Amino acid sequence: MVKGNAAIEIFMEHKLIFPYDYLNEIKNELSEDNKYNIYYVLKGHRYIIKSFDILNLHDFIIIIWDLVKNSSVIIPLNIGTFLQLPDMNCVELKIVDNGSMMQVDFTSKGMSFLNAYEPQYVQDNQEIINKYGHMRLQFHAKILFDLFMKFQNKETEDEYELLYIGQTQKSNIYDRLYGHNTIPEIMRYQNREDGGEKYELYIMVTGVHIKFFEEYNIKQYLTNIITSDTLQDDFLINSGLISKAEVVDIAEAMLILYFKPKYNDKLKNTKSPEILRTYSVFNDCLINPIDYSLDLYFEDNRKKIILKTDTVSTAYKQNLLKCEFDENGKVNDIVLEHNIMDVYL
């Protein structure tokens, strides 16, 4: 008999991946309250913009280079990619940050157009306009590359080395990432390895939420579920209180124990995780098993993410991390399962 009469499934409500150098450009998204609370530090291919060419008043092309594969792609774009502007005379294009970014500066004609037809946009971006004297946009080479792949309407996959996993209890994850001490340290180590020439750091952020299943009995092969609820805040199970913070803690702990990322010095080599309060609070409430639905597929651009470390690697879009307590309250190995339908997708 496996101990427990309730179970929870942790699932990813939101997810976003971006180059670490792009952190400030997506500050608004990352500053949304309580949207993201788990982050992954990844090592991936470095992309640079080699050149661009303006073809006419509406169209231009950019050439983006994958420094690991040593290959390039020519990407056709339209001025409408950025905003519904009348022509290319509204902006000036420039390659900055050693080829990592395409900078788009709005000319006086472009600013006149924005003031006349996009007053709310101007108001929302007044801080940028005040800083530079005009509107400025910056697009990372990888963001533009992914945009092009999205237009191809084909499924693609990106492989990343998973270097570090962390979490935040702050109201927004931007504050945690911006003031982080470990990530710059990881960047320094990585730059020593290849001089930052072929690889760069990426960040994937996710928001975790939970589904709670209350059961009459849990047997090894037979489960009778009587209720199922999606929970956002603290909740009671078997007279024990589980907080949202403790759900974030267990999600991080399970990820670290399974993947064992290179720069996670704590938790990854825990021999008896059940003695940690992170795990024991769930065992005390008779919660068994704890499942973490690890969704590594981005629907908007049809991209599958592969995460690998020195010990393990994912292979599927939909994955399930599973933590089970045996009859003595001991945690069995954290295992990764996958959705069988992935084989046919």
Rank of each mutant, 00 (worst) to 15 (best):
E337S: 09
K322F: 09
K304H: 04
V331R: 02
Y344S: 11
K308C: 00
E299N: 14
V335I: 15
D300M: 13
L307Q: 00
I305L: 14
V331T: 11
S313Y: 00
L320D: 07
I334V: 14
E299W: 13
K304Y: 02
T309V: 07
K308I: 00
T314L: 10
S313T: 10
L320M: 15
I334G: 01
E324Q: 14
Y344F: 14
N328M: 03
T311S: 10
L321V: 10
N339V: 01
K322P: 12
L307R: 01
D342K: 09
T309M: 03
K330A: 08
N339S: 02
I334W: 05
K308N: 02
G329N: 04
V312W: 02
K308Q: 06
C323E: 02
D342F: 06
T311D: 10
S313L: 01
D333T: 06
I334T: 06
K304R: 13
R302V: 13
F325P: 04
S313W: 00
V335T: 15
D310V: 01
K317G: 05
I306A: 02
R302E: 14
L336Y: 05
K308H: 06
D326E: 08
A315N: 12
N339E: 05
E299I: 15
K322V: 15
G329T: 05
I334H: 03
V312T: 14
N328T: 03
Q318N: 00
K330T: 08
F325K: 06
L307M: 03
S313G: 04
K303I: 04
L336Q: 09
V331P: 02
D333N: 12
V335Y: 10
E337R: 13
I340S: 08
I305R: 07
A315M: 11
T309Q: 04
M341K: 10
V335R: 15
V312S: 05
Q318P: 00
N328W: 00
E327Q: 07
I340H: 11
L321I: 13
I334S: 04
K330H: 10
Y316M: 07
I305W: 05
M341V: 03
I334D: 03
E337M: 12
H338W: 09
I305C: 11
Y316W: 08
F325V: 05
Y316Q: 07
E327F: 07
V331K: 04
N332T: 06
E327A: 07
V335A: 08
T311Y: 12
K304M: 08
L321E: 07
N339C: 03
Y316L: 05
V312E: 09
T314D: 09
K304W: 02
I334K: 07
D326T: 13
A315I: 11
K317A: 09
N301K: 04
L321W: 10
